[in-house]
Computed example of a mutant assay.
Amino acid sequence: MSETKTVNTPPHAVETASRFLEARRSAASLPDYPGSPPVSLDEAYVIQDAALSQSAETVGGWKVGRINPPLSNQYGADRLAGPIFASTISRVEPGSTGRIFSKGFGAAEAEFLFRIGNAPDLGKTSFTLEEAAAHIDAVHIGIEIASSPFPGINELGPAVTVSDFGNNNGLIIGVPVNDWKSEAFADVDVHVKINGVVVGTGRASGFTDGAVGSVRFLLEHLARRGIAIKAGDWISTGAVSGVHPVKEGDRVEANFGSLGMMECTIVAQQAQ
Rank of each mutant, 00 (worst) to 15 (best):
M1A: 13
K5H: 15
T6F: 13
N8V: 10
N8D: 14
P10S: 10
F20A: 00
F20R: 00
A27R: 14
A28E: 08
G35Y: 10
P37V: 12
P37M: 09
P37Y: 12
P37I: 11
S40C: 10
V46I: 15
Q48E: 12
T58M: 11
G60P: 05
G60R: 03
V64N: 01
P70C: 13
L71M: 12
S72Q: 12
Y75M: 08
F85Q: 00
V92E: 09
E93Y: 10
E93C: 07
I100Y: 04
F101V: 01
F101D: 00
G106M: 10
A107G: 04
A110D: 05
I116N: 01
N118F: 11
A119F: 12
A119N: 10
A119S: 15
D121Q: 12
G123F: 10
G123P: 04
K124T: 14
T128N: 06
A134E: 13
I136E: 02
A138E: 14
V139C: 08
I145A: 01
A146T: 11
S147P: 07
N154T: 12
L156V: 09
F165H: 05
G174M: 02
D179Q: 04
K181T: 12
A186W: 09
A186S: 13
D187T: 09
D187W: 06
H191N: 12
H191M: 10
G196N: 06
R203C: 13
G206A: 14
T208N: 07
G213K: 05
S214N: 05
R216Y: 03
F217P: 01
F217S: 00
L218H: 00
H221E: 06
R225D: 10
R225A: 15
I227F: 03
A231T: 15
S236A: 15
V240H: 05
H244K: 07
H244P: 07
P245M: 04
K247P: 00
D250V: 06
A254E: 02
F256S: 05
G257C: 05
T265M: 03
V267C: 05
A271Q: 14
